[in-house]
């Protein structure tokens, strides 16, 4: 067991693949969550129009920017809180 990921030993193929897969999975999950939330916040759910209204499109752009900012902010906050609690401990971390 090591605090630094795989430690001194070489990661196995399965571990390397899993690590890349996990990162992509995390990004996909974040994308899905953002899509769901920003659609709810920005899109008129009566669907009287099939086209994205200008206001809706701008709202989506701003919502996605704010979502990334919030995501990063929360990640940083958790990281500093966990460091304050755990002292030095590295390894895991909360960043994307």
């Amino acid at each position: 067991m090591s605090m630094f990921g795989f430690g001194a030993r070489q990661p196995t193929s399965a571990e390397k693949i899993a690590a890349v897969e996990n990162e992509l999975k995390m990004i996909a999950t974040m994308h899905a969550r953002m899509t769901k939330i920003c659609s709810q916040k920005c899109i008129d759910a009566t669907y009287r129009e099939g086209d994205l209204a200008k206001g809706e499109a701008v709202c989506l752009d701003r919502c996605s920017a704010k979502f990334f900012e919030a995501h990063q902010k929360i990640s940083d906050q958790l990281q500093s809180q966990s460091q304050a609690m755990a002292g030095a401990g590295g390894g895991g971390g909360f960043g994307i």
Partner: peptide, 25 residues
């Protein structure tokens, strides 16, 4: 009609958000 417009609009939303997501990421 509503379902059909909803599908079109949702696809457009998906596309736009995916572009933004790629840039931001």
């Amino acid at each position: 009609g509503c379902i059909s417009r909803c599908v079109i609009k949702s696809m457009a939303t998906q596309t736009r958000l995916s572009e933004r997501f790629a840039e931001l990421n």
